[in-house]
């Protein structure tokens, strides 16, 4: 019965199967087949995400990382913090209860690359900003087990002694602008000075930071040392802004029980 039904199509199928066979005899045809089969799927799945901007909730108050915070982010990447800490609170009740409102796509729109992470050997850091004092963060980075005896985190005491490299900041900011972060010319030119001013406000460079990045910017001595700008300043400044770039998540997600 099936045979009868398929009979008219037999020649088509025959042709089809033989074409395949011939294709496999030609390595370049096989190559083309593999590329086609593999790339179409990925393209179909990923391409629509690049038009996502018109559906993603717009965060009007979204601010950019200051040069100091971006330098801290680069240190966070350099030391491989992302291997143990995620920055993505999932839409699960226990995560919201533990870490705060779940993460929105808009929050990482300027994160090149994203640091959502894949493993929580340590807790999620998406909203760790201002949860602890600067002093706690510094002491914890210097010797995690002095504050949390059960911790398995490595010590980062050396960050306190390393001066922060600020000469390359303008180049880094302009590279970020090339990939889509809207830094202005003014912000790029003043990047080194702004990094200095944000962590050492006594030097008279703080006003420029507030003017270029907004009044909400954290301007203070992060590492407790007034004499120099260290990598610890940058990393703590970054940690303290995590979750603080926009108020949107807190506004759109009312607390449970309210």
């Amino acid at each position: 019965m099936l045979r009868m039904f398929l009979k008219p199509f037999a020649r088509f199928f025959e042709f089809h199967a033989r074409t395949h066979y011939r294709a496999e005899r030609h390595s370049m045809a096989l190559t083309g087949g593999i590329i086609l089969a593999a790339s179409v799927g990925g393209f179909i799945e990923i391409a629509p995400l690049f038009t996502i901007d018109d559906t993603v909730e717009a965060a009007a108050d979204m601010r950019l990382y200051t040069p100091l915070e971006q330098a801290g982010r680069d240190i966070y990447i350099r030391e491989g913090c992302y291997a143990c800490h995620s920055q993505m609170i999932r839409t699960l009740q226990d995560e919201v209860d533990r870490y705060g409102p779940y993460s929105l796509a808009a929050e990482s729109q300027y994160d090149h690359p994203m640091l959502w992470g894949s493993k929580r050997t340590g807790p999620d850091l998406a909203r760790v900003g201002e949860k602890y004092s600067d002093d706690w963060q510094v002491r914890h980075l210097v010797d995690p087990r002095a504050l949390v005896p059960e911790s398995v985190m490595p010590q980062y005491a050396f960050l306190l002694d390393r001066p922060l490299a600020i000469e390359s900041l303008p180049a880094r900011l302009s590279a970020l602008r090339a990939v889509g972060v809207p830094y202005t010319d003014d912000q790029i030119v003043s990047a080194a000075r702004d990094a200095y001013g944000q962590a050492l406000p006594d030097t008279g460079n703080a006003d420029g930071v507030l003017e270029r990045y907004g009044e909400e910017t954290n301007v203070r001595i992060f590492d407790g040392r007034r004499d120099r700008l260290t990598e610890m300043d940058a990393l703590v400044a970054y940690l303290q802004i995590l979750g603080g770039l926009t108020e949107l998540p807190a506004e759109t997600q009312p607390l449970r029980g309210e």
Binding site: Q109, Y110, S168, A171, A175, G180
Partner: peptide, 19 residues
């Protein structure tokens, strides 16, 4: 960031970069 240094920034960000 510079052709004289290792540091670079991904062309993608956020959700596109994650995907």
């Amino acid at each position: 960031a510079s052709f004289g240094a290792a540091k670079s920034y991904s062309a993608f960000s956020g959700v596109q970069d994650a995907m």
